[in-house]
Design a protein around this nucleic acid. Structure first.
Lengths: 209, 209
DNA sequence: GCCATCATCCCTCATTAGAGGGGTGTCACA
DNA sequence: TGTGACACCCCTCTAATGAGGGATGATGGC
């Protein structure tokens, strides 16, 4: 795979200011060009279909359809679509979910131009791009066990401050089972109680408020 | 107070991309000019002293010295210094703390250029600028009682997953007192348990993770 | 001087949470 | 045809939690 003479880029972020910054930065590079913008996940998918950019620069956390979902959707539409995630968060849940969704790279929002431009160029050529600090996160994550879908459901109820009995009711299971899921959550996240479970899960990007 | 022929602006944000966007946006206005940038609170205070800008565009949540502290510091240096807060968060704790620190305005980061430019112009003229959505937050906040300094200390311990006994030890008070503070926190935030207290406090910007 | 607020301490008591065990059925995969 | 992972259910027991009281000293405004 070689670099196209001109790399056409779709910028996706819910913040106008961030899009403005990305456009300004990208347009300083002769072979990079922003061909479109989107401020949410659905719009990103639409614009991708009509514009067919070479690279999508995608924010993760957005109101409505998240960057994860949009990335997954785009990759389903075009198998070799190239998505570079640009996220403010270095929680390993976010990172892993993004790579799972089929992103080619993950760059933190505090990146400078010197870090971001090479990332775009690399992804445009079909390469993967994971900065060292992000890769470290990925490794550290492996030392934590993966939560099951059911456990994440329980975790979300925990974050809403639900008691075990209430969780049992909403999930239509017995309180015993709810407590069982909680037990494995505590064990997997290596924390002592439900409050720590919630803050740990927030920090790792497993759940959002 | 009238608008200076040229408004000199100091841009403070820990994200390079955001600063880039702000500079790009501001430089489209003939009478606005970015004269300096800072990526943290201490640097903001330094640059303010050496550059003496007409307006400081300040991010709130930054590693190290926060925007609140930097704003307070700058206002102590120059009584009529003009600070416009630019924050991604609409938690009422953040908003109130910013205005307490002496900020002239508060604009959300999802603001477009049409919203941000008038805000800068207004603050440059010494006016206050609070968008309607932010003002609504402020009002709704008044329906919640103010937490005391000690309660916020306890809240921070809660967020770290500390048990009542541990909180009592670190704050060097009896467990009874720790429980008392917890009781008033629950009452003031109108929640039922410690986990809800933590998530509510996070959402309202009273504490950060 | 008085009243309000805050921080502190104390006690009781019902409920919840968390740790420890036991077990069943299902489904995939080797 | 095991074997492992998962979701589910059940029981016990201790410690933690939260609600309800009562109480003191310091501080600061009015």
């Amino acid at each position: 795979m070689s670099a196209p003479a001109e790399v056409r880029i779709l910028v996706v972020d819910d913040h106008f200011i961030v899009r403005m910054g990305l456009v300004a930065l990208i347009n300083t590079e002769p072979n990079l060009k922003v061909v479109g913008e989107a401020d949410n996940g659905e719009q990103a998918v639409e614009r991708f279909q009509s514009l067919r950019p070479d690279v999508v620069l995608m924010d993760l956390r957005m109101p409505g359809t998240s960057g994860h979902e949009a990335t997954r959707h785009i990759r389903r539409l075009v198998t070799n679509a190239r998505v570079l995630i640009l996220s403010a968060f270095d929680g390993d849940g976010d990172i892993h979910a993004a790579l799972d969704a089929g992103a080619h790279g993950y760059v933190l929002k505090n990146a400078t131009g010197e870090e971001l431009i090479p990332a775009i160029q690399a992804v445009a050529m079909g390469k993967r791009w994971i900065p060292r600090e992000v890769a470290t996160r990925l490794k550290s994550r492996n030392s934590y066990e993966q939560l099951t879908a059911r456990e994440i459901e329980v975790l979300n109820e925990l974050a809403r401050g639900r008691a075990n009995k209430e969780i049992a009711d909403t999930l239509k299971i017995s309180e015993y089972t709810a407590k069982d899921h909680l037990k494995s959550i505590l064990a997997k996240l290596r924390v002592a109680d439900r409050t720590q479970a919630v803050t740990a899960a927030l920090q790792r990007g497993i759940i959002q408020l």
